[in-house]
């Protein structure tokens, strides 16, 4: 993993101050960009959930429980990756958490390097999630004509064939292709095909 991903934010949400503080201390020593919150609500209030990053979530907290925070994030289609770190977890709780899309489920006390590995994993997944979300919205913004051209490009057809099939000018196809690359933030057709494949 690149060090660039480590710059993605890590949010620690735990009502116990010493846990919060010590966790932040340890993760900072692992060179993570850590922010701590004492409860779920203040996290939801202060942080843009439509960004890539990782949350370390305690399950038993006053007001909003960890699971509820997770649910709100899922409803908002947040790309943030969720890691549970709980003092009293059991197997059903873990299963529920993983089914709801959590990256991992840890019991306190947790080994630092295991947690760090899980955070990296979560960050990667979160970045992907974000990319996917962008691709999805890009695809949804396409006109029917653009969608047709995109499908034919992915099929590997050249511009001239596409112009023939669709009975439009070659130049028009070229403009659409440039627009598609721009909309999907792709530099090459191969990259475009990769993103399209993930969408499908």
């Amino acid at each position: 993993m690149s060090s660039g991903e480590k710059q993605l934010p890590v949010f620690v949400i735990d009502d116990d101050e010493s846990v919060r503080d010590s966790l932040a201390f340890m993760l900072e020593e692992h060179d993570f960009n850590v922010t701590t919150f004492a409860d779920g609500q203040s996290f939801l209030d202060e942080v843009d959930v439509q960004q890539a990053g990782c949350i370390i979530l305690d399950s038993r907290m006053p007001h909003l429980r960890g699971q509820q925070v997770h649910q709100i994030l899922n409803q908002a289609n947040s790309p943030l990756a969720v890691i549970y770190l709980t003092g009293h977890g059991d197997v059903p709780m873990a299963v529920d958490a993983l089914q709801a899309g959590a990256v991992n489920f840890f019991q306190k006390p947790v080994k630092g390097d295991e947690l760090a590995r899980a955070i990296l994993q979560g960050q990667a997944r979160s970045a992907t999630n974000l990319d996917m979300a962008a691709a999805k919205s890009a695809y949804e913004s396409l006109t029917p004509r653009e969608k047709d051209i995109l499908r034919l490009i992915i099929e590997g057809k050249r511009n001239i064939r596409i112009a023939d099939e669709l009975c439009i000018a070659m130049r028009t196809v070229e403009v659409h292709r440039a627009n598609l690359l721009k909309k999907f933030s792709a530099k090459t057709v191969a990259e475009l095909a990769y993103i399209y494949g993930k969408l499908a």
């Binding site: 009293h88 006390p109 947790v110 630092g112």
Partner: peptide
Amino acid sequence: HELNQPLAAIRNYSEGGLL
């Protein structure tokens, strides 16, 4: 549960210290 919290914190601090 009560003992877990300080134990978890100690682990975190000591691992950070080691780092």
